[in-house]
Lab assay of single mutants.
Amino acid sequence: NKFNKEMRNAYWEILHLPNLNEEQKNAFIQSLYDDPSQSANLLAEAKKLNDAQA
């Protein structure tokens, strides 16, 4: 299933973003579980936030 793979990839990438705190990571990961079809968008948002907090 495409979403499972996308979701897993997004999950791991978000988990390893160095500039997000636990609360931010948890919020993105919760959103992933709530709507796996948004994995790519959530990952993009997480990366933007990560870069902004660098």
Rank of each mutant, 00 (worst) to 15 (best):
N26Q: 08
K48W: 09
L42I: 10
L15A: 03
Y33G: 01
A27L: 12
A10F: 04
S31R: 14
Q30V: 08
E23I: 10
N4K: 02
L49G: 05
L15T: 05
M7N: 01
A44Q: 11
L17A: 04
Q30G: 06
S39Y: 13
A44V: 08
E45L: 14
L17F: 06
K25S: 05
Q30T: 08
A44P: 03
Q30F: 15
A46V: 03
L17I: 02
A44H: 06
K48F: 09
Y33W: 08
L42Q: 04
N41P: 15
A52F: 09
N4H: 09
A54F: 08
L32W: 03
L49Q: 14
N21A: 08
N21T: 08
E13N: 15
K48H: 12
A52L: 09
L49R: 08
S39T: 04
D34G: 12
N50V: 03
K47Q: 05
L42Y: 12
N4F: 12
E22K: 12
K25I: 06
Q38N: 10
M7W: 15
N26G: 08
Q24F: 07
L43R: 13
A46W: 01
L15K: 15
K5A: 02
I29E: 01
I29R: 10
N26Y: 15
Q38S: 07
P36K: 04
I29G: 14
L43F: 05
K48D: 10
S31T: 09
N26M: 14
H16N: 04
A46T: 02
I29T: 03
K48M: 09
Q38I: 10
N9G: 03
L17Q: 06
E45V: 13
E22H: 13
Q24D: 05
Y33Q: 03
N4G: 07
A27Q: 05
I29D: 00
N4L: 06
N41I: 11
K2T: 05
I14L: 07
I29Q: 04
K48Y: 12
A52Q: 11
A40Q: 09
A54T: 09
N1D: 12
F28H: 02
N50G: 03
P36V: 04
I29F: 13
A46M: 01
N9R: 15
W12S: 02
N26E: 07
Q30L: 14
L49M: 09
A54H: 08
K47P: 00
R8I: 08
I14E: 00
F28G: 01
N9L: 14
A52H: 10
E22Y: 13
N4D: 15
L43V: 06
L17W: 02
N19E: 05
N19I: 06
Y33V: 04
A46H: 00
E23V: 11
N4E: 13
N1K: 07
Q38D: 07
L49E: 07
A54L: 08
A54G: 06
N4T: 05
L17S: 03
F3E: 13
Y33K: 03
A46L: 01
N26I: 12
Y33D: 01
D34H: 14
Q53G: 09
Q53Y: 10
R8S: 03
Y33T: 03
E22F: 14
N1P: 13
K25P: 00
L43W: 03
E6I: 08
Y11G: 02
Y33R: 05
N41R: 12
K48R: 11
S37W: 07
L43K: 10
M7G: 01
K48L: 10
N1G: 04
I14N: 00
L43Y: 05
D51A: 11
Y11Q: 06
Y33M: 04
L20E: 00
P18K: 11
E23Y: 11
W12Q: 03
P18D: 10
L49N: 04
E6T: 05
K2P: 07
A27F: 13
K2L: 10
F3D: 14
Q24H: 07
A10Y: 01
P18T: 10
L49P: 01
L42K: 10
K25Y: 06
L43D: 01
I14S: 00
F3H: 14
N19S: 07
A44S: 08
E6M: 08
D35S: 11
A54Y: 14
L20M: 05
E45S: 14
N9D: 07
N4Q: 05
A40N: 10
E13W: 15
A10R: 04
Q30E: 06
W12Y: 06
A10Q: 01
R8G: 03
N21M: 11
K5S: 01
L15Y: 12
R8K: 11
N9I: 14
L32K: 00
K25F: 13
I14D: 00
I14Y: 00
Q38L: 08
P36W: 05
L17V: 01
Y11N: 02
N26H: 12
N50H: 04
L20S: 00
Q24G: 03
E45Q: 14
Q53S: 08
S39R: 13
D35A: 12
K47Y: 11
Y33A: 01
E6R: 05
M7I: 06
K47H: 04
E13V: 15
F28A: 04
Q38M: 12
D34P: 04
E23D: 07
L20Q: 00
K47W: 13
M7Q: 14
L42H: 06
E23K: 11
E23W: 13
N9M: 15
Q38T: 11
E45R: 15
Q38K: 07
I14G: 00
S31L: 08
L32T: 01
L49Y: 10
S31Q: 07
L49F: 14
F28Y: 08
A10T: 08
N50Y: 02
A10W: 02
E22L: 13
L15H: 05
S37E: 07
N9E: 11
Q24Y: 05
Q24P: 01
A54S: 11
K25Q: 07
L20T: 00
F3L: 12
W12A: 02
A52R: 12
A46K: 00
Q53E: 13
Y11S: 03
N21H: 10
Q30P: 01
A27G: 06
R8D: 01
Q53L: 11
L49T: 09
N21F: 14
M7D: 02
A52D: 07
K47V: 04
A27H: 10
F3I: 13
S37M: 09
Y11I: 14
N9A: 15
I14P: 00
P36Y: 03
S31F: 11
D34I: 13
Q53K: 06
E13R: 15
F3A: 11
S39E: 00
D34K: 14
S37R: 08
K48V: 10
D35I: 13
W12V: 04
Q30S: 11
N19A: 09
N19R: 08
I29S: 11
A40E: 07
A44R: 11
N50I: 02
N9K: 15
N41L: 10
N41A: 11
D34S: 13
I14R: 00
I14A: 01
N1T: 04
L20A: 01
A10E: 00
Y33S: 02
N1W: 00
S37N: 08
A54K: 02
Y33L: 09
L17G: 00
L32A: 01
N50M: 02
L42S: 06
R8F: 13
N50E: 04
R8V: 05
M7R: 01
E6V: 08
P36F: 04
I29P: 00
A10L: 02
I29N: 01
L20R: 00
